[in-house]
Design a protein around this nucleic acid. Structure first.
Length: 622
RNA sequence: GCCUCGGUAGCUCAGCCGGCCAGAGCGAGUGACUUGUAAUCACUAGGUCGCGUGUUCGAAUCACGCCCGGGGCUCCA
C-alpha cells in the first residue's frame, strides 16, 4: 500500500461520475468536506491482496500515529490510484478501504471518498514538516516502511576532504582531523547534523548589551530591530560590500520585494519550495515576498539586450530584505532570520570557461571581503560542492581553489545534478557552540538562464544562453554581524580582548576627562578629529569610565587630565594591544593617534557617530 | 509544526507546595565628591508579576487557552 498523508486546513471533494469499477454509494456520500483533517491518499497494491487484514491493521496504525502527532481529530480516506503502478484488484481495494474506515472510526471522525469515481477535490496543506509524509506498507517478505518528506529522490552525496598538496580527496572518515578541529566540527555538522546544545549562543547577549540588535515582539519572529549602533555597523558593512562588488565591475540595481505567485516563470521555481515564503493577498493577486534577489534580477536580465561583448556582466543588489519563513525552532538571535539583508550579485558569463574564471575571482574576492570585515581564514571553514561530471573535467581548477586557502576543505560530490548548480563553495562560520552557518557563497547555475529566458547574441548573431553565477561575497549582513559577535565571545573565552575592526566600531575613540575642568579640551578634540569620537562626561570615577569603555569594545580610549592639558598629548589605551586586565597605555600626540586611526580605516566606508557625542545626553536603548 | 523550559522594575534575577507591605543588584533621577586607568557614597522614583479565562474567602503562586523568548526534534534551494 502506498500512503500519502497531508495535514490539511481543509479537504473537500465532489464525485463527478463513476468509472466502471466504481463502488455503489448513496447521494450523500458523493461529496464531503473536513476541516483540520489528516488526508490520507491511498493506493492499494497487488502485494496487499495476500493479506488484506494485516495491511489494514498496519496502515491504520500508521495513519493514527501521524494523526496523533499532528493532533488531527479527523481523517479523510481518499482512494488515489496514481500513487502506484501495481494496483490491486478493485474488490480488495474497496475491502481494505472500508476496513480502514471501520478501524479508524473508533478514535477519529473518518470520511471516506468513494472508490472508483472521478472526483474533484480541493486541499489546503499546512506546510509544516510533518504535514506531508509518504509511507509504503509491504507485508510479509521484507517489511519495508519507507519514509520521505520530499517526493524528489535525493542523489547520493560523497563526502571527502581535499587538502592542499599531498593526498587528494580523502574520504572524511579517513582524514586525520588532529590539526583541524574546526573542520572536523564543520564536517560532522554537515554530514551527521549532530547537535548537542543547551545554551543560548553568546552573540544574543552581546547583540543586546552592545545595543546593536534586539528582538521585536511586535513583528514576526526573526524580524529584528536595529538600534543606532547596530544600524551603523550594518550600514557600513552594506556600503563596504557594495563598494567591493563595484570594484568587480558590478552594476547596482533595485528590484521589488514582492512577486506574483502566478507568474509563469516564478511559479515553476516556487513549486519546489512550498510554504517557505511569506505571502500577501492584495486585491486580485496572490503575492509572495522574495527570498533572494534572483527573481528581480533574472526578470530584468531576460528583457535586456546583450551581446557577447557585454559579458561577463554583473548585476548587484543588497536585498533589504530577503524573506524566508524559516521554522521557529531555527531562529536564534541573528544567526538565522526570517527577514535578512543579502548582498546578491549575478554574473552572466559567455560559457563555462568564463564562468570558472569568474568563480575563482569571486572566491578570492569573498576571502578578502571577510578579512576586511574582521574574519580571517582561520575563522571559517571552506566547503566546495560539485557534481561528479564537473569535477572530472575540472580537477585542477578545484584543486587550485584549495591551494588558495592553504588548508583542507570539505568536499561534497553528487552523482548527478539535482539542484540548479554544478559547482558552489561556501565559507562556513563555526560558532562558539559548534554550530555552522554559511557566509560567502558562489554558485555556477546552468538552469535558470533557460527558465527565465535570458539570452545574449554571439559573434555570429545567434542567441545563446549564458552561464549564471550567484554570488554573495559576504553572506547575509546580519549573519556577518553574528559571526563577528561569536568570534568576540570565543576570543573572550580564550583570554583575548574582543573587538570589532576599527572602521566598524561605533565609537572609534572615547575621551575620558578626569575632572569637569578637562571637558572643554575633550570637546575640542571631538571636533578636531575626523573619526567617531565621544566623551564620557558622566560624573563617575575614571575607573568606572574605563571599565565601561572596555565593555563597549572601544578600540581607543584617551584620558585627559592636567598632564595632558599641559603637554597637549594624550594617554591612550590601545585595545588591540591590550590583554585582559593588562591595558596597553601609550602617550601619543594627537597627530600620531589621528594618523594611526586614519591608516586603519583607509579605503573603508565611513559614517558619523549615530549618537550624541556626550554620554550624558544619550538615551539607553536596552 | 511538535516536545520541553522560561516570561516578576529599563536590565539580570529572587519570591512561586495559595495568605506577611512584591524584593535585591545593576541601570535611571537628585545630591555630595572633582576624581589618573576594570564598578565612589547617600537618597529618590520606578511593577497591568507576559495577556486572557477559570478555581478559590483570597492567585505572582494552581488549571486551561493565547502571545513572546530559549533548547531539542523536524527542516534548511
Amino acid at each position: 500500500m502506498q500512503l500519502l498523508l497531508i495535514h490539511s486546513d481543509y479537504i473537500e471533494f465532489e464525485a463527478q461520475r463513476p468509472t466502471k469499477m466504481a463502488e455503489e454509494v448513496g447521494e450523500d456520500a458523493r461529496s464531503g468536506r473536513l476541516e483540520e483533517a489528516l488526508t490520507a491518499f491511498i493506493a492499494v497494491e497487488k502485494f496487499d491482496q495476500d493479506d488484506p487484514e494485516a495491511v489494514v491493521a498496519r496502515a491504520a496504525e500508521e495513519i493514527a500515529d501521524v494523526a496523533l502527532k499532528v493532533k488531527a481529530d479527523r481523517i479523510m480516506l481518499y482512494p488515489y490510484a496514481h500513487l502506484s503502478s501495481e494496483l490491486s484488484d478493485p474488490d480488495t481495494a474497496i475491502t481494505v478501504l472500508k476496513g480502514l474506515q471501520e478501524s479508524l472510526s473508533t478514535d477519529f471522525q473518518v470520511v471516506k471518498a468513494p472508490f472508483g469515481w472521478y472526483k474533484a477535490f480541493k486541499l489546503s496543506c499546512k506546510g509544516h514538516p510533518l504535514s506531508e509524509l509518504s509511507r509504503s506498507i509491504r507485508m510479509g517478505g521484507g517489511e519495508v516502511v519507507s519514509k520521505a518528506l520530499k517526493s524528489e529522490e535525493k542523489a547520493v552525496s560523497y563526502w571527502r576532504i581535499l587538502a592542499p598538496g599531498g593526498e587528494r580527496m580523502v574520504p572524511v572518515e579517513e582524514f586525520d582531523f588532529a590539526d583541524h578541529k574546526k573542520l572536523d566540527k564543520f564536517a560532522r555538522y554537515e554530514i551527521e547534523k549532530s547537535r548537542a546544545v543547551d545554551k543560548v549562543p553568546p552573540h544574543v547577549e552581546l547583540m543586546r548589551r552592545l545595543e546593536l540588535v534586539d528582538y521585536e515582539p511586535g513583528s514576526d519572529s526573526g524580524n529584528m530591530r536595529f538600534y543606532p549602533k547596530g544600524r551603523l555597523i550594518k550600514g557600513l558593512l552594506e556600503s563596504y560590500v557594495l563598494d567591493r562588488a563595484s570594484d568587480l565591475g558590478a552594476m547596482e540595481v533595485e528590484t521589488p520585494i514582492m512577486y506574483d505567485m502566478d507568474h509563469p516563470t516564478l511559479k515553476n521555481y516556487l513549486d519546489r519550495f512550498p510554504a517557505r515564503q511569506y505571502t500577501i493577498d492584495a486585491e486580485k493577486k496572490h503575492l509572495f515576498l522574495r527570498f533572494a534577489a534572483c527573481f528581480g534580477q533574472f526578470l530584468m536580465a531576460s528583457e535586456m539586450v546583450m551581446s557577447y561583448r557585454n559579458l561577463p556582466l554583473k548585476i548587484f543588489e543588497i536585498t533589504r530584505y530577503s524573506f524566508r519563513r524559516e521554522q521557529r525552532g531555527e531562529l536564534v538571535g541573528i544567526r538565522r532570520l526570517r527577514a535578512f539583508t543579502m548582498p546578491d550579485m549575478h554574473t552572466l558569463c559567455l560559457d563555462m570557461n568564463s564562468a570558472v574564471e569568474e568563480f575563482r575571482e569571486q572566491y578570492q574576492a569573498s576571502i578578502s571581503v571577510l578579512k576586511e570585515a574582521g574574519l580571517d581564514l582561520d575563522d571559517y571553514e571552506v566547503a566546495i560542492r560539485f557534481t561528479k561530471d564537473f569535477y572530472e573535467s575540472n580537477k585542477e581548477f578545484v584543486e587550485g581553489l584549495v591551494d588558495i586557502v592553504e588548508k583542507p576543505v570539505l568536499i561534497e560530490m553528487w552523482d548527478e545534478r539535482f539542484f540548479y548548480f554544478v559547482l558552489k563553495f561556501e565559507f562556513n562560520f563555526v560558532d562558539a557552540l559548534d554550530k555552522a552557518s554559511a557566509l560567502s557563497t558562489v554558485q555556477i547555475d546552468v538552469e535558470n538562464a533557460e527558465r527565465y529566458g535570458i539570452t545574449y547574441v554571439d559573434a555570429s548573431g545567434e542567441k545563446q544562453l549564458p552561464i549564471l553565477l550567484h554570488c554573495s561575497p559576504s553572506g547575509a549582513i546580519e549573519r556577518l554581524m553574528y559571526a563577528l559577535l561569536e568570534k568576540g565571545a570565543m576570543d573572550t573565552a580564550s583570554g583575548k580582548v574582543p573587538m570589532f575592526p576599527v572602521w566598524l566600531s561605533p565609537t572609534q575613540l572615547r575621551i575620558i576627562p578626569i575632572a569637569e575642568r578637562h571637558q572643554p579640551r575633550a570637546m575640542e578634540l571631538v571636533h578636531l578629529l575626523p573619526f567617531r569620537v565621544d566623551v564620557d562626561d558622566r560624573d563617575e570615577t575614571v575607573g568606572k569610565k574605563i571599565r565601561d569603555a572596555g565593555r563597549e569594545w572601544i578600540p581607543y580610549v584617551a584620558v585627559i587630565g592636567d598632564e595632558e592639558l599641559e603637554s597637549g598629548e594624550m594617554t591612550v589605551t590601545i585595545r588591540a594591544e591590550s590583554q585582559p586586565s593588562k591595558p596597553k597605555k601609550v602617550r601619543m600626540s594627537v597627530e600620531d593617534l589621528s594618523s594611526r586611526i586614519e591608516g586603519e580605516t583607509r579605503g573603508k566606508p565611513w559614517r558619523r557617530l549615530p549618537l550624541n557625542e556626550r554620554l550624558t545626553l544619550r538615551p539607553r536603548f536596552v
